[in-house]
Nucleic acid binder design. Structure first.
Lengths: 198, 198
DNA sequence: AAGTTAATTGTCAAGTATGATAATTTATAG
DNA sequence: CTATAAATTATCATACTTGACAATTAACTT
């Protein structure tokens, strides 16, 4: 009965466009006009399907966190039995352009969180969970390692990963991505060496 | 002859306010209205003393790069004779809140560089020079180390440093800062260990 | 074909942002 | 005190952004 709803489809398209704009212009720069242009729809439809600016940001945050959770699960499922940590680092540092927006959106949200306490809390949890994922894999492989060492190395790998992706806006940065990956691998090796020199 | 000019003083105040707004709202969110309110002057004075939006951003970028250069020089002058690398890491990771805006502004500029090729080029140079500074200290202390190792560790330390400061907008992140510092120290140690296991 | 539901389009009003220019005030020199 | 140069204030025009609502069109059911 009645015209079939495309709300789910449209909402998804709108959030795609919003995501693109956030990655490109930041949260403050992602105006409804730009989003509408990017999505190829009238601005009024954004309001109709998703709501006002605040609703948009909440919806994007929700989707971002949900996608991230799924993404993390996929990541874990994809890791082989052996050398899981090395595989993880390969995935983090050799990923394709398609996921590039992911970190850019994350950085934009983090920057915008300064004025939005609720968002800040959600993202703080998110960062912690990402670091925890890395830490869990490290623990699994180096179960005799000290907790401090695991925490430091996990934080370091996560930091290097976020940083190198956020610098993609600057264009080609020479061998920075490779150097960053090598740094991450060195952190991993530092755990092995802890182990030996005991 | 005539009223004494306060242009230099006002320009500096205006750029201070702009910097604060950029750190808080991002480049796109730092409107002339907000800057004027932050600086406590009429919006027209911004135009009078510095110019339009574009002039503002160029001026801020110029000042940022100049300050950064001085800051780096001060840093080097401050480092002691021995244990320079450890001192450097102390300075990077234990710095006071006063410099906090520094990295936030840098992150905001980097995010905005996606749409501004000229800015991107300047910041790419800036990042490289920062990494080069770390690399130079590493080389000075570990002159027998492989170039690859130096590059990787320098990139890693820089990445970890940028990342942890950009996360300050999320509030207290537990022991993340300490863990990050430990990760940086581990990277340094990894060079020493390379050396031994040769 | 009529009814119904939702998408889509059109339009309006209020608020904000920017750029430009004219008028005014203020601080100094002579 | 007067001339002068610069800061400051006032005002205007234009464009952008957002939110809200009415009108229309499209797709489906019975």
């Amino acid at each position: 009965m009645g015209r079939p709803s495309v709300k789910a489809q449209r909402s998804s398209e709108i959030l795609d466009a919003f995501e693109t704009c956030v990655a490109r212009y930041g949260v403050e720069g992602a105006t409804l006009e730009r989003i509408a242009a990017e999505a190829g729809l009238a601005r009024a439809l954004i309001r109709h399907h998703v709501g006002n600016r605040d609703d948009l940001l909440k919806a994007l945050t929700r989707r971002f966190l949900a996608q991230s959770e799924r993404h993390q699960q996929d990541l874990l499922d994809y890791l082989p039995e052996g050398d899981r940590v090395l595989s993880l680092i390969d995935l983090l540092f050799d990923h394709s352009q398609s996921d590039q927006n992911f970190v850019l959106v994350a950085e934009a949200l983090i920057a915008a969180a300064g004025e939005r306490p609720e968002l800040a809390a959600q993202l703080a949890d998110w960062v912690h969970s990402f670091i925890a994922l890395i830490a869990a894999e490290l623990r699994r492989e180096y179960d005799a390692a000290a907790a401090d060492a695991i925490d430091a190395v996990a934080a370091g790998i996560a930091g290097i990963y976020f940083n190198v992706d956020s610098l993609t806006t600057l264009g080609d940065m020479g061998g920075l991505r490779q150097a960053s990956k090598q740094a991450a691998l060195r952190l991993v090796r530092s755990i092995e060496l802890d182990h030996e020199s005991r």
